[in-house]
Design a protein around this nucleic acid. Structure first.
Lengths: 163, 163
DNA sequence: AGTATTAATAGGCATGCGCTTACGATCTGC
DNA sequence: GCAGATCGTAAGCGCATGCCTATTAATACT
């Protein structure tokens, strides 16, 4: 006994060969977010506001609640964000003629300009980081990340309603 | 001049070919964390407690403050966590004979057992996710992730004190 | 017409967390 | 042996966030 064999469960248990994914992903996410912050500050954008600008225009978004859900924000908490963005002329919020309860959201040209400028800034910083990766792994890392990001099981809300 | 050309910045700006890294990493981290939660609950461990168990024993940790820093916890906030872990016999907290201010932290055998069991469970779930990746990208993804995770610039605290 | 639903909005409650202060015990330098 | 720094600990402030309720306007169901 006390042997350091490796079989002790269903699969290859024992001492793992890598840290938990979350243990790497979460700090990385934090670090990336911290890198973004100064850029956002420079443009007077909060993280939520940037998130709104990003997701507006990518997908046709109808209601504010739907937007909130896609960016995983609280329905009631983005309202001040939208107020601010609209007041600054970065988004438009017109009542839907077909259903006058909903406000149709869209990016204004200035909104798109700002979004593009900020995103370029941010991705420029990210590229500096990616450059640190061995070239052989860079592509796989990015593809893997995008693939996981696209998995529906990882979106808790969608995964729940299987009907 | 409303042409939809793509050059408009310093480098390859315009519409980016991928989402921001943080925009993928952060939700992924959240999803992974959510996947871990039931496992942790099943073992009666909170996230901070698990984090402590993980990092104890990997590196020789002397002071509680040092532990707190490595797991990015607040010095004062892990104390109840340590209290609980010690009360459950998962860690030991003996006064250092050389400096009786500091408590030497170590994993008990039960602590190590629990940590290994939980981590196997967690990584088993993660492997199910990784299996969804194209085999060609899986290795690069993991290596890239580990490489970025190991970068010192991404640890805000260490990066700051360059002196 | 009359009731139930849904969108947007406001407000409030509870939680978790980072940060700060305070304090006793202990160590170190002078 | 005293002053200042350090460790562990307690307590509290403030912010961001998730969640829940209520209100109002508009739509849908019957």
């Amino acid at each position: 006994m006390a042997e350091n064999a490796a079989d002790q469960g269903t699969s290859s248990a024992g001492r793992p060969t890598r840290p938990d994914l979350a243990a790497m992903l979460v700090p990385l996410g934090r670090a990336l977010t911290a890198m973004e912050q100064p850029v956002l500050d420079a443009h007077g954008l909060a993280m939520w506001a940037y998130s709104v600008l990003l997701h507006l225009d990518e997908t046709p978004i109808r209601t504010q609640a739907a937007l909130a859900e896609t960016i995983r924000a609280d329905k009631t908490r983005i309202i001040p964000v939208l107020d601010d963005l609209a007041a600054r002329g970065l988004i438009r919020r017109q009542p839907d003629p077909e259903d006058r309860r909903v406000r149709l959201l869209s990016l204004t040209p200035e909104g798109r300009r700002l979004r593009d400028a900020v995103q370029s800034d941010i991705q420029r910083g990210e590229e500096r980081l990616l450059a640190r990766l061995p070239a052989a792994d860079r592509g796989g890392f990015l593809r893997g990340l995008q693939a996981l990001h696209a998995l529906p099981e990882l979106s808790p809300r969608k995964a729940a309603d299987g009907r």
